[in-house]
Amino acid sequence: MIEEQQLIVITPDQLQSKVEEMKQGGYRLVQIGCTQVPGSLEINYSFDKAYTFINLRIVLSSEKETLPSMSSVYLSAFLYENEIHDLYGVTFSSMAVDYQGNFYRTAVKKPFLNVMLTPEKKEGAA
């Protein structure tokens, strides 16, 4: 194994405080990424400090859930959050820069979301 990588699963309520802890602990925000697994979305926040790699993971049951933006803690987070919004449809509140879905100019909306976790209601449907 090249390096041991820690994975800590947290709830959306813990996100702000945990990310602030990482910042105060001197960690660099490496990336924020999203993965669709059956029935849910995993949002991974990766951090590094002196070659120690830690992931905070949030599991969302629907792409319609809103997460708080971490751009107030790490400014660069807004780039990753806009990316996840455009590829998966997850919304982040209070992003430092909100591209309103125009960060990636894709032919289809939410191209990386294979199955809608919360299907859109059709007009007129009961």
Partner: peptide, 17 residues
């Protein structure tokens, strides 16, 4: 300065499927 990218996003990551 406000950046914009995404003009030629290729979606290669999705090809793993």
């Amino acid at each position: 300065a406000i950046p914009s990218i995404g003009f030629i996003h290729r979606g290669l990551e999705k090809l793993v499927e």
